[in-house]
């Protein structure tokens, strides 16, 4: 008697080793960024080029801080997944694993550095 169904045997054997979860996650974060990014770009366009006090005051504003935190978190997770897609197209074996880990590390470290700065500016 076979305990594993043919479907179970086939799961995870696609080119990407998984199903639609990746695509769904990119769409969900993509929709979120569609609203976050235009507002953040305008805030940034009005801030870059100004001096120390102006930049500190801008990012100490709670609304701007929350917007920036959302941008960094949703944006960098979207980036890591997108980079993973590109890596899986061109790199294989151990290189692929290492590069995917690197993309995720860059993503989380950027989020962490950004959150640290925003919290420090808010206090």
């Amino acid at each position: 008697m076979r305990y594993l169904t043919p479907r179970k045997r086939a799961e995870g054997l696609g080119a990407a080793r998984h199903g639609t979860a990746h695509h769904v996650a990119m769409n969900v974060s993509g929709w979120a960024l569609l609203f976050i990014v235009p507002v953040f770009v305008v805030v940034l366009a009005r801030t870059i080029g100004h001096g120390y006090e102006h930049v500190r005051d801008t990012f100490a504003n709670p609304l701007v801080a929350v917007l920036t935190a959302l941008f960094l978190f949703v944006g960098m997770r979207h980036f890591a997944r997108g980079a993973q897609m590109a890596i899986e197209d061109y790199a294989h074996g151990g290189t692929r694993t290492a590069l995917v880990m690197l993309a995720n590390a860059v993503s989380y470290l950027t989020i962490a550095a950004g959150f640290y700065a925003l919290i420090k500016l808010a206090l």
């Binding site: 990012f59 960094l72 960098m76 980036f79 897609m85 590109a86 860059v106 950004g114 420090k120 500016l121």
Partner: peptide, 26 residues
């Protein structure tokens, strides 16, 4: 789309560096 998406890491690194530096010292 892929090239611009990957390339945007440069701007995000610069944004994060700017905010981080603003939080650390003048």
């Amino acid at each position: 789309i892929r090239i611009t998406g990957l390339g945007l890491i440069v701007a995000i690194a610069l944004i994060t560096a700017l905010i981080f530096a603003a939080a650390v010292s003048k």
